[in-house]
Design a protein around this nucleic acid. Structure first.
Lengths: 223, 223
DNA sequence: GTCTATATGAGGATAGAC
DNA sequence: GTCTATCCTCATATAGAC
């Protein structure tokens, strides 16, 4: 053990249990009732956490494998490659939960921009790991060579243009596009601040920003 | 040549020049009039570019060395370590150019928040690489284990609290702290959008945001 | 001040046993 | 479905020659 190319990490302490390794592993599997779908979910959870904390480049398959109790080869069985992990986590997790928010506004009788943002903020407030991943990858993927560059470029465009297709109710004289651009930018920046201030409530932080961006009495009745 | 631990990259084509390697290297040094200070500046320039594009974790000493025509050992001679590079680039480059902006507002007779932001944006508009590095590291350093975590945490606090010490002229009823928080957040988010849209002018993009955040006629005479 | 050489290990990915 | 073993490349850092 402990050759230069050992498959396991140095932190992996063995030998306390005198039974065979296989027996221990079988126990762990049974104890967790781990089926395939659970495994994949655990892998994606760990991926979200580490892509957020360390970025795509900074995250190794080994870290994710350690977090879910597998080897690198075990993780690759599910995702195929590191890029496969990235793709899964963006489309199967982030997109899935996010797109419903703006879509829900289309059906509103009197859609208010402030309501959409409050809804977004309320959702994000209880999924900090996903927000963290989004923020980190979003910056890392500014580079055209990043495997998620196209994803984020397309996403940014579609968010504002989708919002422009809604018949927002705003005070007279307000430029809808400018407010949307300003508000979405503000939210991206505020989320970074939120992630840096442990324990703070994103809704409360946003309320202060909203108060500045959509000031009363101008926005009275429109928020 | 080309053993597994060759110091040079595969892209490093040799042999076209039949003179000794030392002679070629001497030529390059003379041709560039390279002194120590120039070298360090070139190293920091390359570091800023790659820390921005690939992040701290994603950047290797080899890339920086290649960019400036040195070996890894050569780069380490100047910075000591990779963390040393990070430290240099934040304190010797980013801080140096940035702190003067808010400080310049203290001496204004009738300081306007809008002026400070316009000044900041005008400066950043012609240093995209520094802004890129700031954005990328700022997200990467959300993690407490990142070597620049403390730097960015302190920076974020001091930016708002420094600004709160200035006697800003604002319309009646405006909450200065909320506007500052909102505006700084908006700028962080807008810069990400700017970096994703090649060729756009940051001043113009900011003007639209300012129009939304400090709407007329409420801010008439205050911007 | 810059290099070569080397130490020492981590990186992603694949083959094949079980 | 998960592992071990292995391939090959890349990483940071140091020692010491010139």
């Amino acid at each position: 053990m402990s050759t230069t190319n050992d498959n396991r990490r140095d932190t992996d302490v063995r030998g306390a249990d005198t039974r065979s390794t296989d027996a221990q592993i079988a126990d762990m599997r049974d104890a967790a009732h781990t089926n395939d779908s659970d495994r994949l979910n655990a892998i994606l959870d760990a991926t979200i956490e580490y892509f957020g904390r360390l970025g795509y480049y900074g995250t190794s398959l080994q870290r994710i494998a350690d977090a879910v109790g597998l080897t690198k080869a075990g993780v690759l069985h599910y995702a195929g490659s590191k890029e496969g992990l990235l793709s899964l986590v963006l489309t199967e997790r982030y997109d899935r939960e996010t797109e419903s928010i703006t879509e829900s506004m289309v059906t509103e009788e009197r859609p208010l921009i402030a309501n959409m943002w409050r809804r977004t903020v309320a959702v994000n407030n209880h999924r900090p790991a996903l927000v963290h991943m989004f923020s980190t990858l979003s910056a890392e993927a500014l580079d055209p060579g990043h495997p998620a560059h196209e994803y984020f470029a397309r996403r940014e465009q579609s968010i504002v243009s989708n919002a422009m297709n809604i018949n927002w109710q705003v005070p007279d004289g307000v430029n809808v596009q400018h407010v949307l651009q300003a508000g979405f930018s503000m939210m991206d920046g505020l989320q970074l601040r939120w992630l840096r201030s442990p324990g703070q409530d994103l809704n409360a932080m946003w309320a202060e920003c909203e108060d500045a961006l959509l000031p009363l009495p101008l926005w009275e009745g429109y928020r």
